[in-house]
Nucleic acid binder design. Structure first.
Lengths: 225, 225
DNA sequence: TTATCATTCAAGAAATCACTTGAATGTCTA
DNA sequence: TAGACATTCAAGTGATTTCTTGAATGATAA
């Protein structure tokens, strides 16, 4: 007995939903949103074992969200579709608006109650032309090297303290990191504001910036990617 | 040992993904997208048993996608957020673009290869002003009664044949149904085109039409909803 | 060819999920 | 207040999922 087309379609759509139903896979998608990567790199970044990571990636592939290609011995995965970014962001928006837990965690990250609205990508691009804004990339060095906003400084949260003396007290700072699920920028902004700096988050992260067609530069390194 | 905020957030986002990971829940969301409904009505429409339906609804509630209120003995569920429509549609778009199975099923529904592009909602609204278009609502009568596009004819797929003699051979027909996951409109358009009519689908269904702020009329019936 | 390396496959254990059944809760009506 | 009704809870079963471990595959390099 065969099932109707309606049920068949819902099952396929549910396959995509299933891909989004595990924290591990969301973390993988977050990484892949920044650019293509090999299995081992992804396993390192997400803390998954190699075999487990490979299995999650195959599940993402079955859902059509990622594709892979071979590069020598390695298999490189990447997002199939930039629309996946929208899907991930919508997931975040809905969770933020409708789940108390999420709102609470985000408030906690921003320190106090005075988290300012994020800067839109268009606004940042416009202000970059004036040169009057300091852009802070809060991701690990290897991800920065693989691609970042032109002119951005790269400091992780732990390195942030050393940067403070070099900043003009009234400098306008915009921090960003990996994208919708990344919390580094939240934390960096909270730390900077606590010290009186005028810091705000960029809306979205590098993947969204790139998807909007804004410039990205990279310092490819020999041992990397 | 407590988990970090990053993991906690991903787990919450995954909760929303989990809500989308079962065909039964997607069917419930499709129904709820059309308007609020009681548990029994939803169970009937989706073919779930009452208890099972209730459990799925509670899972949707835990994910923040639906809310409920009491109305006498009944509990009425509804979507929390119209953004959920966007999420559902994005799920469909990604599945359609990246899963061969889906593309194949949809081709099958449209009969041959000559499925025309859907009519956008703005276009339909404009053409309605001219009065030169026949709008066909392919949903069951009770859903039609609960809300439909002004001036639309209500015919299910099985009733469609009886309508044909009354249609002008060159009439422009636009068919719609429940929304992104509904296949009635596909099937109606295929049947009409096979008989030489100029029929097209509306992009999205009633929920999207309503969410865009276009007019919806209803014929509330005593025994219904 | 052989050795090596990155990834995938296969099998199993523990946890979770979907669905069923029957009882419990809470609200209205007589 | 008792009875009827809609929904939810609780417990159990079979299926699925997640993660681990160790072996198998496929591609490169010597």
């Amino acid at each position: 007995m065969s099932i109707g087309p309606k049920t068949a379609l819902l099952e396929e759509y549910a396959l995509v939903g299933q891909a989004l139903s595990s924290p591990a896979r969301l973390a993988l998608l977050e990484q892949l949103a920044q650019g293509e990567r090999g299995v081992e790199g992804l396993a390192d970044k997400t803390g998954l074992t190699l075999a487990n990571c490979s299995q999650h990636l195959q599940q993402l592939r079955r859902a059509g969200l990622v594709t892979s290609r071979r590069a020598g011995k390695a298999v490189i995965y990447r997002l199939t579709d930039t629309k996946t970014l929208e899907l991930m962001d919508l997931l975040r928006v809905l969770a933020e608006r409708n789940l108390d837990q999420v709102a609470q965690i985000l408030r906690g990250l921003s320190g106090g109650a005075d988290a300012p609205e994020p800067v839109s990508r268009v606004d940042l691009a416009a202000r970059m032309a004036d040169g009057a804004v300091t852009i802070l990339d809060v991701r690990p060095a290897d991800e920065f090297a693989a691609g970042h906003i032109p002119g951005a400084l790269n400091r992780t949260l732990t390195e942030l303290g050393a940067l403070l003396p070099d900043l003009a007290p009234d400098a306008e700072i915009v921090a960003y990191c990996r994208g919708p699920y990344c919390i580094y920028a939240h934390q960096a902004v909270a730390a900077l504001r606590q010290r009186g700096f005028n810091a705000r988050r960029l809306e979205g992260g590098l993947p969204e910036w790139r998807a909007d067609g804004f410039a990205v530069v990279s310092n490819p390194q020999p041992g990397c990617c």
